[in-house]
Design a binder for these strands. Structure first.
Lengths: 197, 197
DNA sequence: ACCTGAACACCGTTCAAGT
DNA sequence: ACCTGAACACCGTTCAAGT
């Protein structure tokens, strides 16, 4: 998708400028103040009226999803690197870390993401990336299970929830050491013990 | 602590009434709308001005902690029942569930609780219950470790974080089945495998 | 000593009026 | 077709004035 198009429709020059300014400003504000940042302030700093922001992005989730677009694509692209790793458990671990970083892009992001993951409402634009992530997680889980390295009872959704939890804990300001301990606990939970032959 | 006293000081009758009305109304609003509910609405429905609410409870956390007081005491009291169980792993499991229910008292509660658990600021009244819970969790973990039933690497804080995470996930509207799967994953993570003798 | 409620500075969201 | 910004209904918090 080129910069001047939205769903294939060419846009007037001023509309493109407004959209780009809104996205750029919103990203900066999400980074600095978290997902709950004032949309009024975003509009003002982008040099547009509040109505223009709502016209482009009817909900906060729509704006969030648009700002996350680039990161979503990067995450999907990263799968190619991960798939080249050979060891399916290492691949699963790296994938979980990659998701965690994605969830940690802005403070407070895990909440709307979880809401979207649960949602039946198909109008929430965050639902799509969530479903993609759960499906991808499931594939890594199955690959590791085929190699007998992950418990048969584990499903992709379980580890999606776990990764989202770790990102949420991280967002509350917990030190990296405690996070690592939690990650280790979770890894002990899904790994298949080597049966001593 | 009797109803008409705060830290041992006797209170004027109208002050008692205001305090009680605020707590009662706040609990109802926290239950119905979550921890982010409008304090202005609470004051109005309690029949007092906003200034009176702020005089009694200078921050949202102070009001939350006061409303949680009863539940905090119940949770501590429940330890006596749990301690009578015999099996240290069953005791640990029940304790984790009891904490989880406490964290789930109001929607959005895990966030201020985690913030308080991290905080160095001793003026946050939620910090005290958090530290009590972490210490208690650590005792259950150690007892189960002495019996060789929980991995030596696990600490109380790890399972405090895990229980808080599950409560957070629960608060996002995830179905009970998914929660149970997550709890099982965590339990697999902390349980010591029976070494096949 | 405590309470009241007006006042201030914010916010999300809509929509008539403009270009 | 798109943008503007005033307008409305909210909110947290403070503080002078009352009792």
């Amino acid at each position: 998708m080129s910069a001047g198009e939205v769903r294939g429709r060419k846009l007037r020059a001023d509309v493109q400028r407004n959209r780009a300014a809104l996205l750029e400003t919103a990203q900066r504000h999400f980074l600095q103040y978290g997902v709950g940042t004032s949309l009024e302030a975003v509009a003002k700093e982008a040099g547009v009226g509040p109505g223009t922001l709502y016209r482009h992005f009817p909900t906060r989730e729509a704006l969030l999803a648009a700002v996350l677009q680039t990161r979503s694509e990067e995450l999907v692209a990263r799968q190619a690197d991960i798939d080249r790793l050979g060891d399916p458990v290492v691949a699963l671990e790296q994938w979980l870390r990659a998701m965690e970083e994605y969830f940690s892009a802005f403070s407070g992001l895990p909440d709307p993401l979880m809401a979207a993951a649960r949602a039946q409402e198909p109008d929430n634009p965050l639902t799509i990336p969530c479903h993609i992530l759960i499906t991808a997680t499931d594939q890594y889980v199955r690959a590791a299970q085929r190699a007998g390295r992950v418990r048969a009872s584990v499903r992709g959704n379980d580890l999606f929830l776990a990764a989202c939890s770790v990102a949420w804990i991280k967002g509350t300001g917990t030190e990296e050491e405690s996070l690592d301990r939690l990650r280790t606990l979770i890894a002990s939970g899904y790994r298949q013990q080597d049966s001593p032959a």
